[in-house]
Amino acid sequence: MELFKDLKTMLKKNIREYGMFIALFAIMLVFSYLSDGVFMSPRNISNLINSMGYIAVLAVGMTLILIIKHIDLSVGYVAGFLGAVAAMLMTAYKMPVYAVIPIILVLGMLIGLFNGFMVAQLKIPAFVVSLAGMLIFRGALLQVTVKTGTIIVPDDAFNAIGIGYIPDIKLIPGYHTITLILGALAIGLFIYFQFQNRRNKKKYNFEVVPIKIFYIKLVFISLLIAYVTWILSDYNGLSWTVVIVLIVVGLYNFIQTKTVLGRHIYAVGGNGEAATLSGIDVKKVTLFVFASMSTLAALSGILFTARLQSATVSAGTGFELDAIASAYVGGVSAAGGVGRVTGSIIGALVMASLTSGMNLLNVGVSYQYIIRGAILILAVVFDVQTRNKK
């Protein structure tokens, strides 16, 4: 009884952190039951995770934008436009992949710096700046693709970024061995860092969860990682898209949790005036966040173009809305100052799971939009209610 009491107390205190995991678990159970197990098949799970890659990357950048109480509506068409530019450079100008990718990322960073300058230095509302950017890059995308409508990318190395899988050493028949090894390594690192974090909290007399609850958390998440790893290894293993998303999430999670810049981002989002008075350069933080957002939009455009193996006139449509929805569902506060990139990735997985499950059940597109909109509203209501209680 004491264990359940501690578990209930922990869930109440950390409902924002664990609520999304509970929601994801429930969604997967429901769709698995309704689809007679097809939803949890290795092929479907692999496709689901790979298909959310370009949105997950955008959601990471959008998390930082929303934390500092701004918004960027241009990222969808920035991704579409830069993806089309990448395709054009490889086809019309015969540039190699290793040159095209850095160029596209730098272009994305420059776009973000311009947006950040307009917001931070000229004090133009981010909504207006990004809305103008959305229209500009929508037109730019149409201009790039005006001749053919679709730019086919024949480069196998580039396309492998979106549809390729990491190579294997084939030690275990029927399974992707490298994926299993990486999964085991991920579990080991997760357990190590959890113990290290617990020791650091106790060292500085911070509150820690009871040891039994701590072990339950370790076992649950380790089993989850093991299960996903096993599912992926039973199909084609880890894709390059997943590897790129994991690298991005790891980098930004480190920035958020382990650096001075991360603390400054939260400070600016919590109270910009207080952050300025405490000596934080709010303008530099804003420039970094916007530059980061558009750089990730460029990466998203690369992933999407590589996945389709082409650039189309409709690329980027609605990407920004999916990224914003993923961030809010993943626990970012509508009031700013609260949010984790890891949570936004779970939010992206929740939204992708909803779409995949509804497609398997042949739910009409119109109803899919309605349901996804309702989920977003519920996430924001949940955020407001939990903040009011605190």
Rank of each mutant, 00 (worst) to 15 (best):
1 M>E: 12
8 K>Q: 14
10 M>V: 11
13 K>E: 15
13 K>W: 00
19 G>T: 10
22 I>K: 14
23 A>R: 02
23 A>Q: 01
25 F>Q: 12
26 A>V: 10
30 V>M: 12
34 L>K: 06
35 S>G: 07
38 V>F: 04
42 P>T: 12
45 I>V: 15
50 N>H: 05
50 N>K: 10
52 M>R: 04
57 V>N: 03
60 V>W: 02
60 V>Q: 01
62 M>I: 13
62 M>R: 02
63 T>R: 00
65 I>E: 09
66 L>W: 06
68 I>W: 00
78 V>E: 00
78 V>M: 02
83 G>V: 11
85 V>R: 00
87 A>L: 04
89 L>C: 14
97 V>I: 13
97 V>S: 03
98 Y>F: 15
99 A>T: 10
103 I>W: 02
107 L>G: 06
111 I>Q: 02
116 G>D: 07
116 G>P: 00
116 G>R: 01
117 F>T: 11
118 M>Y: 13
118 M>N: 08
124 I>Y: 06
125 P>G: 10
128 V>P: 07
128 V>D: 11
129 V>N: 09
130 S>W: 03
131 L>H: 03
135 L>Q: 10
137 F>E: 01
139 G>Q: 07
141 L>W: 03
144 V>A: 03
147 K>I: 07
148 T>Q: 12
150 T>Y: 10
150 T>S: 12
151 I>F: 00
155 D>P: 00
158 F>W: 12
159 N>K: 01
167 P>D: 06
171 L>P: 01
187 I>E: 14
188 G>D: 04
191 I>E: 08
194 Q>K: 14
198 R>H: 02
199 R>M: 08
202 K>P: 05
202 K>S: 09
206 F>C: 15
209 V>Q: 15
211 I>C: 04
215 Y>C: 07
215 Y>R: 11
216 I>R: 05
222 S>Y: 01
225 I>F: 06
225 I>G: 14
231 I>Y: 01
233 S>P: 09
238 L>P: 00
240 W>Q: 14
241 T>E: 06
241 T>I: 15
241 T>V: 15
241 T>D: 03
245 V>T: 04
246 L>S: 08
255 I>K: 00
256 Q>V: 04
256 Q>D: 09
258 K>M: 15
260 V>N: 13
260 V>C: 08
275 A>E: 05
276 T>K: 15
276 T>R: 14
278 S>E: 05
278 S>C: 04
279 G>V: 08
281 D>S: 08
284 K>C: 02
285 V>S: 04
287 L>C: 06
288 F>L: 08
291 A>I: 06
294 S>L: 12
298 A>L: 08
298 A>R: 02
302 I>W: 00
303 L>Q: 03
303 L>N: 03
306 A>P: 05
310 S>T: 03
314 S>A: 06
316 G>C: 05
317 T>R: 04
320 E>G: 06
329 V>D: 05
330 G>N: 05
330 G>C: 12
331 G>E: 02
331 G>R: 00
335 A>L: 15
336 G>L: 02
336 G>A: 10
337 G>E: 11
345 I>W: 03
345 I>G: 04
346 I>L: 11
349 L>Q: 08
351 M>R: 04
355 T>I: 15
363 V>R: 05
363 V>C: 12
365 V>K: 12
366 S>H: 07
370 I>A: 14
375 I>D: 06
378 L>H: 13
378 L>R: 07
378 L>K: 08
378 L>T: 02
379 A>H: 02
380 V>L: 13
381 V>Y: 15
381 V>W: 13
383 D>R: 05
385 Q>H: 14
387 R>L: 13
388 N>D: 07
